[in-house]
């Protein structure tokens, strides 16, 4: 057991535990806080996978912005009369069965696939160069093969989303 493996185990335990807490907690504020923990742990996984830039963005966008947004909307939509602020619905049993079934099917498939299990996967934590620079080139470089156009479209999507959110959310 090296340090990386131990870190992975700890991070995975936090991830699964906080995910379960998010979906099972009766108090939605707590669920949202566990969601923040989940985002942070996911960022740790990215670090393990040598994806530094993604890890930082994860912290910035998810743990920072999205969690705050969710907390704000919980605050704005809270029903003070209700004890159970995060109740399940009528089909929670069916949903649990479907989720379990899908999980089993995917895990079974991965376990059966020796190519994924033993082959290329061993290179996961191999040392690599500074990814951030390469990502920057890939995203912005107008000369080499890059994702400039999707990036611009994504910015447009964000703009539309901002305007849309304002229009939808404003008082009539």
């Amino acid at each position: 057991m090296d340090l990386a493996s131990i870190s992975f185990l700890i991070l995975a335990a936090i991830l699964v535990g906080s995910a379960l807490a998010v979906v099972l907690m009766n108090n939605i504020v707590r669920a949202a806080l566990f969601l923040a923990a989940l985002f942070g742990a996911a960022s740790g996984i990215y670090v393990l996978l040598n994806a530094d830039f993604i890890a930082i963005v994860q912290i910035l966008v998810y743990a920072g912005a999205v969690t705050i947004l969710i907390l704000f909307s919980i605050m704005l939509t809270q029903n003070p009369n209700s004890k159970n602020s995060n109740p399940g619905n009528h089909q929670w049993v069916i949903a649990a069965l479907i989720a379990l079934g899908l999980c089993a099917a995917i895990v079974f498939s991965f376990a059966q696939n020796s190519a994924i299990a033993n082959g290329a996967g061993n290179a996961v934590t191999a040392a690599s160069t500074n990814n951030t620079v390469v990502i920057g080139n890939l995203l912005y470089s107008p000369t080499t093969y890059s994702y400039v156009l999707p990036f611009e479209i994504a910015s447009l999507v964000l703009l539309v989303a901002i305007v849309g959110a304002i229009v939808i959310g404003r008082e009539d």
Partner: peptide, 20 residues
């Protein structure tokens, strides 16, 4: 919406099960 979502993923599960 959640009923539809359950049906959607239930269908995905059935296909996955058949595939396996």
């Amino acid at each position: 919406l959640q009923n539809y979502g359950a049906a959607f993923f239930g269908g995905a599960l059935i296909i996955a099960a058949a595939f396996i």
